[in-house]
């Protein structure tokens, strides 16, 4: 599904190397977690994969089902099935949540040469999926993320994910700013979307999210590289001992 080889990335306007040779393969239907200390390059990886401005790829490649991601515009990557659940979902004043969702869904369908969803069909699907995330009609009408609580914003990200049905989902610190109940709700939303054809890359600081969203593989990232890969037990190890030991091991 997702294949990253020797990815080197620096900041566009600064001589600062952030990713220094990332190698990662996420197979179809699998959940991979990336953990790591602050500044290790986790969020940068998610931004570079989704095509945000401000970064320069100096070496390496990233493909999604064989398609060269780095060569595509952000919206083309989205249409190819890449979804990023933002750490800080962006507010868009005056644009209703439903309008936003519908525009996004239809834009992707168009790009893939599929027919647009009729408004009746769209509404039916959206209501159904919103319900499982405990998103009420009012929240669907309100402007995108404006005045949403931390939990509401993250649930809204998962709703978008549910509507867009991507095959590769990147969750960038989706657990940040969530209380226990909200985390449970969001995790349930994610788990409901797990399927054979859909893969996840879950970026997090903490093991606790991985209690809810059980990963198949855990990677530890530090200083722009993946320094260790293992099973779910690796996350527990970090939880108990911190990153210091692992980092020392690598040094």
């Amino acid at each position: 599904m997702l294949e990253i080889k020797n990815l080197h990335v620096k900041l566009e306007n600064e001589d600062k190397q952030i990713l220094k040779g990332v190698n990662l393969t996420v197979e179809a239907g699998k959940v991979h977690a990336i953990m790591g200390p602050n500044g290790s390059g986790k969020s940068t990886l998610s931004y570079v994969l989704s095509g945000r401005d401000g970064y320069e790829v100096t070496d390496g490649e990233a493909t999604l089902d064989g398609a060269d991601l780095l060569d595509l515009e952000p919206e083309e990557r989205a249409a190819a099935g890449l979804f990023l659940a933002f750490q800080y979902p962006v507010e868009i004043p005056g644009v209703g949540n439903l309008t936003f969702l519908r525009t996004a869904v239809n834009a992707q369908r168009k790009a893939r040469g599929e027919e647009e969803l009729s408004s009746a069909d769209f509404l039916k699907v959206v209501r159904e999926r919103a319900k499982t995330l405990k998103i009420d009609a009012d929240m669907l009408k309100r402007p995108v993320n404006v005045g949403f609580s931390g939990g509401e914003k993250k649930r809204n990200e998962i709703l978008q994910m549910a509507m867009l049905e991507p095959k590769m989902c990147i969750l960038d610190e989706t657990d940040s700013g969530l209380d226990v109940d909200a985390m449970k709700l969001v995790s349930e939303g994610v788990n409901a979307l797990r399927s054979e054809g859909r893969s996840f890359l879950v970026i997090t600081h903490y093991q606790r999210l991985l209690d809810h969203i059980k990963p198949d593989v855990v990677h530890i990232m530090a200083n722009g590289r993946i320094i260790k890969t293992g099973g779910p037990e690796l996350a527990l190890e970090v939880e108990n001992n911190g990153y210091a030991d692992l980092l020392a091991e690598v040094e």
Binding site: R52, P74, A78, L84, V90, I92, A107, L164
Partner: peptide, 16 residues
């Protein structure tokens, strides 16, 4: 720019 990137990540082209 963040708003535009957010929209584009969801599949809209820049003008949209």
């Amino acid at each position: 720019d963040d708003q535009l990137f957010y929209c584009r990540q969801r599949g809209m082209d820049e003008e949209e």
